[in-house]
């Protein structure tokens, strides 16, 4: 039997890449793959987040569960998460913070002893593992000068105290959004805009101006030298159809044709800082591969296919 394959070879082009943000083009694949990547980035790439909190003393104005919830939402650096274990799969321990494979322990001790309000932030969380610490947003923004103190947890007045132990575990966004490494992941079809030059040349300048202005986003403009309508930013088009409707009302249907390229996508990825944006995409590809691997047929299922008889066996090369 000849080797059949319908494999595509996607092409990637990075437009912009920062630690927590990236924009790239993905071509030569279809929307199902683009959407699978988006869904996996949001809900299935693992990170580490605080999952269990033991409060020793809390005399702050916020109640215990309120603080526990806030702690859970603090992004922790999770480069290690891909190689960690889920605590439910960890045989070596019971996920109590002592196990290096599946959990990380944090301590927080803060007491206000002065008249000024004390801000308790993510910087006050002391980690037992230097690879898993609260995300430093100054580092990401690249400015060391500003005195930004981290994620606010609670404010204490004189005499109030907060003392707790927290355990961070590996998890995925499907379980709880606190584990999602993605702030936003979006993709759009690349628009392809064609202007019928002959028809356009016959229009008056006012008509051209009204066409340019009919688009809510700045997609078109008038070339100052040639006085022609030109596309200045195709990607600003939001698929709103306003220009098309305008042309219809002018009786100039077909003057501008806008198509979505079905195999070409522009991705925008923003992370919470738990992992780098580029790493998030790579992790998503890896997770998607693992998911596909998990849905392969097992050998005993293949045996059950014998019911297909001689023809089936013949086709399988048997």
């Amino acid at each position: 039997m000849e080797e059949r394959s319908y494999q595509r070879k996607p092409v990637v082009k990075i437009r912009e890449m920062k630690d927590d943000y990236m924009k790239f083009e993905l071509r030569n694949t279809d929307a199902s793959v683009a959407n699978a990547l988006r869904r996996v980035m949001i809900a299935e790439v693992p990170t580490v987040a605080i999952d269990l909190v033991e409060i020793e003393v809390n005399s702050s104005v916020l109640n215990d569960e309120f603080i526990a919830h806030r702690l859970g939402l603090i992004p922790l650096t999770s480069e290690r998460a891909m190689s960690m274990r889920f605590s439910r799969d960890c045989d070596a321990c019971d996920g109590d913070g002592q196990c290096e494979y599946c959990s990380v322990e944090f301590h927080l001790r803060a007491k206000c002893v002065v008249d000024q309000t004390l801000d308790v932030t993510s910087k006050d969380l002391l980690s037992s593992d230097h690879t898993v610490v609260p995300v430093d947003f100054n580092e990401i923004a690249g400015d060391e000068t500003s005195e930004q103190k981290g994620v606010m947890i609670v404010k204490l007045r004189r005499g109030q105290e907060l003392r707790l132990r927290a355990i961070a575990r590996k998890g995925i966004g499907k379980d709880h959004a606190k584990w999602s490494p993605a702030a936003t992941v979006t993709f759009m079809y690349e628009p392809e805009i064609n202007i019928n030059e002959d028809m356009m040349a016959r229009l008056s300048l006012e008509d051209k101006q009204s066409i340019v202005e009919s688009s809510p986003t700045k997609v078109f403009d008038i070339d100052p030298t040639t006085q022609q309508v030109v596309v200045v930013d195709a990607e600003a088009y939001t698929y709103d159809d306003e220009v098309i409707k305008k042309l219809e009302s002018m009786g100039k249907t077909g003057l501008i044709d806008i198509k979505a390229k079905e195999d070409s996508f522009i991705f925008t990825v923003e992370t919470t800082g738990a992992v780098k944006a580029s790493q998030l995409v790579l992790n998503a590809i890896e997770i998607l591969k693992q998911k596909l691997d998990a849905v392969r047929l097992s050998d005993d299922t293949v045996e059950a296919d014998d019911q297909f008889g001689e023809l089936g066996a013949h086709m399988r090369g048997g």
């Binding site: 059949r4 394959s5 319908y6 494999q7 595509r8 070879k9 996607p10 092409v11 990637v12 694949t29 793959v33 580029s278 995409v281 790579l282 590809i285 890896e286 998607l288 591969k289 596909l292 691997d293 849905v295 392969r296 047929l297 293949v302 296919d305 297909f308 089936g312 086709m315 399988r316």
Partner: peptide, 25 residues
């Protein structure tokens, strides 16, 4: 073909596509 053959082929092709995508990325 058979449903099982088609299913396996689809998964293998997707797996190869993702391998390609990863190295391209």
């Amino acid at each position: 073909s058979s449903p099982m053959q088609a299913y396996n082929l689809a998964i293998n092709d997707l797996d190869k596509e993702l391998d390609h995508l990863r190295s391209a990325f």
